[in-house]
């Protein structure tokens, strides 16, 4: 039974890792924490299920490509309009403004798609696979596959292309990067677009596990942030590790202790980490970015 709990925890953890990665990228290039990340998940899940799959009846791969493009464009636009303006502000202002923007997104989803929850079975329906007595749904396998693919692609891009070097340069010193001719605003917009795509992926992968509601992404977004802190603030490997760890621990704890308090477990874990290991498992200073 424990194997089962760990397997489904890992799938959830992979989602947290995706969201945590979004936080890391935005933090490392803009120096802000996007408290609207959860609402990006909600919003993209609505567009994906409500418009692309249900209204337009697009096949899964097309819808996937389209949502990625849409969310990237929206992310870039929001970055220009709102988020890049926040980086000059105090942390207090940036936190509150992103919370406010999250409410705006959530309510827009509510206005556009109405109060009824949307349902979506996913590309594979409800089928499951039996691996040595552990039942894993195809959806969970898809989640793990997509997340692994993203991690690998991202690693290669960061390691070997100019884009990665440019992003790292902006992350390390924005002023110097600008003086060296790097179009900082475009890099910031690009980073934000990428983190929005990560949120979109999280949204469409989660949709078959939850109903699509206005509150669907909020908790996932917050837990992604918790995962980032647990892994090490601003660290890419830390975000992945923190996400998986949080997903698995949360599932084990809700199975063994109390499922009613499932949502409290992440925060309790956060308090434990802040008390005893405030810099996280893989602090950014020591571990170089992937």
């Amino acid at each position: 039974m424990l194997g089962q709990v760990i397997a489904s925890g890992a799938a959830m953890g992979a989602i947290y890792a995706l969201v945590a990665l979004g936080y890391v990228f935005v933090w490392n290039t803009m120096g802000i924490i996007n408290f609207a990340a959860g609402e990006f998940i909600t919003f993209s899940a609505y567009i994906f299920v409500g418009t692309l799959i249900t209204s337009l009846a697009l096949p899964f791969p097309f819808a996937l490509a389209l949502i990625a493009i849409l969310m990237a464009a929206m992310g870039a636009a929001f970055s220009r309009l709102v988020f890049s303006r926040l980086q000059r502000q105090r942390a207090l202002v940036a936190i509150i403004a992103t919370v406010g923007f999250g409410i705006f997104l959530k309510e827009m989803a509510h206005i556009i798609y109405g109060p009824e929850p949307l349902m979506y079975d996913g590309p594979f329906g409800m089928r499951t696979l039996d691996v040595a007595g552990i039942l894993i749904s195809y959806q969970q396998l898809l989640i793990l596959a997509v997340v692994t693919l993203i991690m690998a692609a991202q690693y290669l891009v960061f390691r070997y292309t100019m884009l990665g070097k440019v992003m790292r340069a902006v992350a390390m010193d924005r002023e110097t990067a600008a003086l060296m001719g790097i179009p900082v605003e475009r890099v910031l917009a690009g980073t934000f677009a990428y983190s929005s795509v990560l949120a979109a992926l999280a949204g469409l992968l989660l949709a078959p596990l939850f109903f699509v509601t206005v509150d669907m992404g909020t908790m996932v977004g917050l837990k992604g942030f918790v995962a980032m802190i647990i892994g090490g603030f601003g660290s890419i490997p830390g975000a992945i590790l923190g996400g998986l760890l949080l997903g698995i621990l949360e599932n084990i704890a809700s199975f063994t202790i109390s499922s009613a308090y499932k949502d409290a477990i992440a925060f309790a874990l956060l308090l434990v980490f802040l008390a005893f290991l405030p810099q996280g498992i893989l602090p950014e200073k020591v571990v170089d970015r992937a």
């Binding site: 408290f35 942390a91 936190i95 918790v226 802190i229 949502d263 409290a264 925060f267 405030p278």
Partner: peptide
Amino acid sequence: VRIRGHYLAITTLGLNEIFRLVVLN
């Protein structure tokens, strides 16, 4: 005194959620 900025924001938000769950359960 020990936890600031973003950490304090998410911690207080988490405590609010824990409060809701306790009251509910």
